[in-house]
């Protein structure tokens, strides 16, 4: 049977659903243990944040795709939440092994971490649904094409929806790939492409936290001298 772009996209969607079949859109018992081990239990904040971002995502999804599609947006969001909790658990297991600690209070109470991780999970879900346009040239060309209405949802759409700094999103990508070994080659390349776009342009916008860090680094005298923002 010849492989068509549509069939390839359908296969990717099916694979994603199978991989997430055994996961829940609620924190697993292992994750709940990590939450309880924190100096400040982040459970409530995490649940509240997911609910708020669910509303924002669904509304923006409906605006982009069509008002009748709000339910579809919620389904995509739920898949993203399943992946978010799955990857979070895997990341924490790796960190526990690496650092020999079980209290991740600072990390798990960091809003930028959670929003970035959820955004990355949703980017994987959204990009899976536009798989055919990824194969036709990735972010640069695929998202500019009018072959699918859902290409409007391509990266960096999710950053705008969640009001997220590209610099923070960038920080989760490598750990995300490490923590999710079942990630398909195309998706890994897509995330790598997102990295390049951030590195080449998005992280250098005027409001990027990168400039404060460069300034701080210069004041502390560590590392190389930073270039001024205009450069």
């Amino acid at each position: 049977v010849p492989q068509t772009p549509i069939r390839a996209a359908m296969n990717s969607i099916q694979q994603l659903r199978v991989e997430l079949n055994s996961t829940s859109d609620q924190p697993s018992s292992n994750l709940q243990v990590y939450f309880k081990n924190c100096t400040v239990d982040p459970s409530e904040e995490i649940t509240k944040r997911v609910e708020e971002l669910s509303q924002v995502f669904s509304q923006r999804f409906a605006q982009a795709v069509g008002q009748r599609c709000e339910g579809l947006g919620r389904k995509r969001f739920n898949l993203g939440v399943q992946l978010y909790y799955k990857v979070m658990e895997s990341m924490l297991k790796s960190e526990e092994k690496r650092l020999s600690v079980q209290n991740f209070s600072k990390l798990l109470n960091n809003a930028a971490f959670h929003t970035s991780l959820l955004a990355c999970a949703l980017e994987v879900v959204l990009a899976t649904y536009v798989g055919n346009s990824l194969k036709n040239g990735g972010f640069g060309r695929g998202c500019g094409a009018s072959d699918s209405i859902e290409t409007d949802l391509c990266f960096p759409w999710i950053l705008d929806v969640f009001q997220l700094h590209a610099f923070d999103f960038y920080k989760v990508i490598e750990s995300f790939i490490k923590a999710e070994p079942t990630l398909k080659h195309d998706m890994m390349k897509h995330l790598e492409h997102c990295e390049h776009v951030i590195m080449e342009s998005l992280a250098w916008r005027g409001d990027s936290p990168l400039f404060d860090l460069l300034k701080q680094s210069r004041e502390e005298g560590t590392g190389e001298q930073a270039e001024p923002p205009a450069t």
């Binding site: 600690v101 600072k106 990390l107 960091n110 930028a112 971490f113 920080k171 750990s175």
Partner: peptide, 21 residues
């Protein structure tokens, strides 16, 4: 995921990237 260029060093992880202990 062998084609991906991993840049983090052994002593770095998500905790360090979000300024945590």
């Amino acid at each position: 995921n062998q084609d991906y260029h991993f840049g983090l060093k052994e002593h770095e992880g998500i905790s360090e990237l979000f300024d945590c202990d």
